[in-house]
Amino acid sequence: MQISETHYLVVSVALLLIGTVGVLTRRNIVIILMSIELILNAVNINLITFSQAWKNMGGQIFAIFVITDAVAEAAVGLGILIALFRNKETVLADEVDLLKW
């Protein structure tokens, strides 16, 4: 069986859904951050797939940007997490409601 673009896209969608559900349902902020990584990687797969399909290197370059972004975001996210933990003694998202109106 030939592995076509559709297969890649299915994997991508699956990763997106897993990531989304993870972001929405898990309480631990570490896991939420990991789920965000999943979403970003789903996007990356998408980009690489279409780059390959249309013979356009833009997609691959963009994917590298996304990876860089993901790294920066993880660093900032984990930084916030550590600061949060120092102040609130928690890593659970539902116990933090500082942005309430």
């Binding site: 989304t20 972001v23 929405l24 998202a93 539902d94 933090v96 409601d97 309430k100 109106w101």
Partner: peptide
């Protein structure tokens, strides 16, 4: 205002 619970995940849910 009641929607703005301060819980990040509920916001994310609204986005979704």
């Amino acid at each position: 205002c009641l929607l703005q619970s301060g819980r990040v995940q509920s916001y994310a849910l609204f986005v979704v």
